[in-house]
Simulated assay, not measured.
Amino acid sequence: MSWVLYREVVMDQLQQAFEVNRESIPAAAERIARAVAEDRIVHVFGSGHSQLVALDVVGRAGGFANVNPLFDPLFGRAERVEQFAAALLSAHRFQPGDVLIVISHSGRNPAPVEVALQGRAQGLPVIAVTAVAFSRSLPSRHSSGRRLFELADVVLDTLGAPGDAAVALGPELSAGPTSTVVGAALLQAVMVEAAARLLAMGIRPPLFRSGNVEGADAQNHALRLRYHGRVFPLI
């Protein structure tokens, strides 16, 4: 049964990814905890299906209220167009002390590269979520010749297969992408660690509660007011 094979691939990749990123997860969490402690913003960007991973840490139960989505309204259709990301970023402001998370499976297309370059130019630490071996095997499509993993201060390696689809069904026929499930798991692990570090510092992390839990609405509303004007209210 092919679904069983996919399950095994995902479980094995998750286990390996958590082991490979044993040092990267705390390193990323430390930067995010520091940003929260200093009342700064965590910006997150992904284009195309990478945007699914970005949105997984935006405005949800158990998530930080200071996460600002750099939303791609074209859902990746202009990911290969240089200067497209510059237009997107014109609606957002990076400030000293902020953190930037950029997600891209291949890490080669202009949009994520440009976002990372802009973050670096403004002094933000860049956290990349990408498949490093796959990205190394590809030339950049950006005029700088750079790939996302080369621009990051911390890299969360998803260990994704070339082309992402991990279950071979026949000649040039594969199914079962893993980048979303592994990327989201790694990023959520970072957020959990960041929240724990804030508690250890004596700081209550600004985490949303589920709107389906009694009494959560008032707390969530207060968090939205706290970051009003600095976080795009996508959700």
Results as ranks from 00 to 15, higher is better:
106 S>E: 13
229 G>Q: 11
155 V>A: 00
101 I>M: 04
192 V>N: 12
27 A>I: 09
218 A>Y: 01
15 Q>R: 14
73 P>I: 04
135 S>Q: 13
7 R>T: 06
2 S>Y: 11
189 A>H: 05
36 V>S: 12
134 F>R: 07
193 E>H: 03
2 S>A: 07
111 A>N: 09
149 F>H: 14
10 V>M: 13
233 P>A: 01
184 A>H: 00
76 G>A: 13
164 D>N: 14
107 G>N: 03
221 H>D: 12
42 V>I: 15
126 V>G: 02
141 R>W: 10
17 A>T: 04
98 D>W: 01
203 I>K: 13
202 G>H: 02
184 A>L: 06
131 A>I: 05
1 M>P: 12
38 E>M: 07
141 R>H: 15
117 L>K: 08
146 R>E: 15
110 P>E: 02
24 S>M: 07
157 D>R: 11
126 V>L: 06
66 N>E: 03
234 L>F: 10
205 P>T: 03
64 F>A: 00
33 A>K: 11
89 L>H: 01
86 A>H: 14
47 S>L: 02
87 A>I: 14
49 H>Y: 05
177 P>Y: 08
50 S>A: 14
105 H>F: 00
139 P>W: 07
31 R>H: 08
23 E>F: 11
43 H>T: 07
196 A>V: 04
11 M>Q: 15
223 L>D: 06
37 A>C: 01
213 V>W: 06
208 F>N: 06
84 F>W: 13
45 F>R: 10
158 T>G: 08
139 P>R: 13
4 V>G: 01
100 L>R: 04
106 S>F: 08
117 L>W: 04
216 A>R: 06
167 V>S: 10
84 F>N: 02
131 A>P: 09
14 L>W: 04
227 Y>K: 03
101 I>T: 00
180 T>S: 15
134 F>H: 15
99 V>M: 08
157 D>L: 09
205 P>A: 06
13 Q>R: 14
